[in-house]
Design a protein around this nucleic acid. Structure first.
Length: 732
DNA sequence: GCTATTGTGTTCGTG
DNA sequence: ACACAATAGC
């Protein structure tokens, strides 16, 4: 009877995918074909229909959000029976394994997780210690290279062997030094989390056996995006029972740049000859024009397995394509159409703007602000990446793990307490010579050093010691409070007395609030060797930006196409469809990456349920310069019959008279009506209001007519030169 | 050791 | 256009 409710509403193929529990199966799930539904139903069926204990099931996803969603939906179907289910991202699952087992690799279980900034710091330190110039050897490129090796499952020794030139060999040498330093700091970077788990299983068959027996049923979501190590991990775990179900869509493979290998899904049937293949080709999301257009674009890929997606939805509006003069007009178009949609009864939450690169959000944000449209940007600077949050977290990390050199470096002089570069450089040298941790090296400075430096370092170390005492006594949020208090961090912010400082204080309060929530929710998960603080640090380290994005019915979402994967919106605005942006410049001339761009475009288009607007601009600001753009080749790949082209209604520059113009269009551009109206009000001394910079006073008038510029001193933003035509000035 | 100034790269995407 | 890092000057 429980089975009945599980199967309710599934189509025959979905039902097959759910029922076919034994042996390997490959579910090719087209966009919008109810993939999540299948995964959750399958888990529910395994537990509620087949009586498999929930602790025997492992489900791996790519984002915490997807994992959370799945957990919630399974929980709804089954209740508490699902509680021992292992659902998580590759990273969170592996961290859990390593926290138990990393001792087998001769390491300590109290490791910390280094983020990108930390690992870049380590690479710079390795360069320094080897007397290498960071200008000749770009630390970011080296980190990139190391990450590639880790994604492919290659250890330093292997990298050294495989290095193809002098430069690559150097990167391999840095890789070795880098791993050494991570080991000394008892830290793992993101790549290590997976790689170390695979190493553990490679070297310790008995440990592997334990997990093979434990997880008799394995499900992997977004299988087309798995990389080399993840592939190996899955295969090791599934080797014994072979009950492996992978779900994915080769057309949505968009992570080759970070080591994902489409081969993994394309070759699944070769890896498992007995595999059952199930195709989900019914789309429940998009209208016919949207689906047909997206399919037409992606069908231009040569390296592709053909697939027909059929929508269950009839009718639907054509795709609207709009050519704007520049990025500002593009943004205005988007905002206008959103307001219109709102008028038609759609909520702002049903609207999303998708772009290829994060930098494109700026123009859109300015326009949204101007029209008071509420919005959220997914990506960009995330909460846990803000300086003040990372500072607070670094204090916590240092308390937990005195070996964490990167955390120490971060907070040793924050707020400034007179422990500067020279002191740290000396300590760092001492640490390298005597094989000490940075903290112990500082301890020596304190013991031996007299004078000002000695006093300051002693004071700092005393404070850290005192805080370490508090660590075990106080609940999480109060511990953070104590840190901010004792370190003088809060006082420094209060003294600063700027709006920015105030917002940083707000963020820290928010961090404390989320620590309190976390404490309450996870108190029962801690034990003698994993405190709530340890768990909190893991969680924060593995959080992604998308995880914080929540459906808010009252806000428009702005995000990259990559972030949008797996999401859907009634209204989608896909902007910046121009050569060198989408497809991105880096893919030119390379057929493989061009095909990935095309798949990315497919992903973008298939996010739309009801309406899809695609825009491109003939010119836009890039790197502070005006750059002329040509329409994306992908636009030509959309069949004409599905498209309605919209004209820019802003008069072309060439057709405009040079003197002040009336508004000739129904577009209500409010720019410079007063200012360029010829009322003689443009003169130095006039006070004006700019939508972004605020109120200011005109200092100088440059030129006349269309390209007239004004030099304005803004009260808050300082001195700026603006073009009257584009500045949207009002009299103040 | 701290602050202001200059210089540089950034804008492909993530856990 | 902007953010961050390196450098110079105090």
């Amino acid at each position: 009877m429980l089975s009945d409710s599980i199967f309710e509403g599934l189509n025959p193929e979905q039902r097959q995918a759910v029922e076919n529990t034994e042996g390997p199966s490959l579910v090719l799930a087209g966009a919008g074909s109810g993939k999540t539904r299948v995964l959750t139903s399958r888990i529910a069926y395994l537990i509620g229909g087949c009586g498999i204990p929930s602790e025997s099931i492992l489900a791996v996803t790519f984002t915490n959000k997807a994992a959370g969603e799945m957990k919630e939906r399974v929980g709804k179907l089954l209740g508490p029976e699902a509680s021992d289910l292992a659902i998580g991202t590759f990273h969170s699952i592996c961290v859990r394994i390593l926290r138990r087992e990393i001792g087998h690799l001769g390491r300590s279980r109290g490791f910390v997780i280094y983020d990108d900034a930390d690992s870049l710091g380590v690479i710079k330190e390795v360069l320094r210690r080897n007397d290498l110039d960071p200008k000749a050897h770009d630390p970011r490129r080296i980190r990139w290279r190391i990450d590639q090796w880790k994604n492919a499952g290659t250890l330093p020794a292997g990298a050294m062997e495989a290095a193809y030139d002098i430069d690559d060999e150097l990167s391999a040498r840095i890789y070795a030094g880098y791993q050494r330093m991570l080991l000394d700091a008892n830290a793992l970077d993101f790549g290590d989390i997976i790689l170390a788990t695979v190493q553990l299983f490679r070297q310790h068959p008995r440990v592997l056996e334990f997990y093979q027996r434990r997880w008799q049923y394995i499900l992997v979501d977004e299988y087309q995006d798995t990389n080399g190590v993840q592939y190996e991990l899955v295969h090791l775990l599934a080797a014994e029972h072979r009950n492996l179900c992978v779900v994915g869509d080769p057309d949505q493979s968009i992570y080759a740049w970070r080591g994902a290998n489409v081969r993994n899904i394309l070759e699944f049937e070769n890896d498992y000859s007995e595999a059952r293949v199930i195709k989900l080709e019914r789309n429940y999301r998009s209208t016919q024009p949207i689906l047909t257009a997206a399919s037409a674009v992606v069908s231009n890929n040569v390296a592709r397995r053909d697939k027909r997606l059929v929508t269950e939805r009839e009718g639907g509006d054509p795709i609207h394509i709009f050519e704007a003069e520049d990025d500002r007009e593009e943004a205005q178009f988007v905002v206008r159409r959103m307001l219109q949609a709102k008028g038609d009864g759609e909520s702002f939450g049903g609207c999303a703007v998708l772009y290829r690169t994060n930098a494109q959000s700026r123009a859109l944000e300015e326009e949204l602000l101007k029209y008071d449209v509420p919005y959220t940007v997914v990506g960009g600077v995330r909460f846990y990446d803000r300086a003040e949050i990372k500072d607070a977290m670094a204090y916590l990390r240092l308390l937990v793990n005195p070996l964490d050199d990167q955390a120490l470096r971060r907070i040793v002089n924050r707020p400034t307490r007179g422990i500067g570069k020279t002191t740290m450089e000396r300590a760092s040298e001492r640490a390298a010579e005597q094989e000490l941790t940075l903290l112990d090296a500082l301890g020596q400075t304190a013991a031996s050093g007299g004078g000002r430096t000695g006093t300051k370092v002693r004071a700092f170390l005393t404070m850290i010691e005192a805080l370490r005492e508090d660590m075990s006594q106080l609940p999480l949020d109060q511990l953070i409070g104590r840190i901010l208090d004792q370190s003088g961090y809060l006082d420094a912010l209060i003294k600063e007395a700027t709006p920015e400082a105030e917002s940083r204080r707000d963020n820290l309060l928010e961090l404390m609030a989320s620590a309190r929530d976390f404490d309450a929710a996870n108190a029962d998960l801690s034990d003698e060797d994993r405190t709530v603080l340890d768990l909190f640090l893991d969680q924060v380290a593995l959080i992604s930006d998308l995880d914080q994005w929540e459906d808010r019915s009252d806000r428009v979402s702005l995000m990259t196409v990559h972030s949008a994967k797996g999401l859907e919106f009634p209204y989608v605005f896909l902007v910046g469809l121009e050569e060198r942006i989408f497809p991105h410049a880096s893919s030119s001339g390379d057929e493989e990456s061009l095909e990935e761009e095309r798949r990315l475009c497919y992903v973008a288009m298939t996010r739309a349920m009801d309406r899809l607007f695609i825009t491109h601009a003939s010119a836009r600001m890039r790197y502070g310069e005006r750059s002329f753009q040509s329409p994306s080749r992908f636009l030509d790949e959309i069949p004409d019959g599905l498209v309605e082209r919209l004209e820019s209604r802003r008069p072309r520059s060439s057709t405009r008279s040079s003197s002040g113009s009336r508004r000739e269009s129904s577009f209500d551009y409010s720019y410079s009506q007063e200012a360029s109206g010829g009322d003689g009000e443009i003169q130095p001394g006039t006070r004006v209001r700019h939508p972004v910079f605020g109120v200011g006073e005109i200092i100088e008038v440059q030129g006349a007519g269309l390209n007239q510029k004004l030099k304005i001193r803004f009260e808050r933003a300082g001195l700026k030169t603006v073009v009257v035509r584009y500045a949207n000035l009002e009299m103040a």
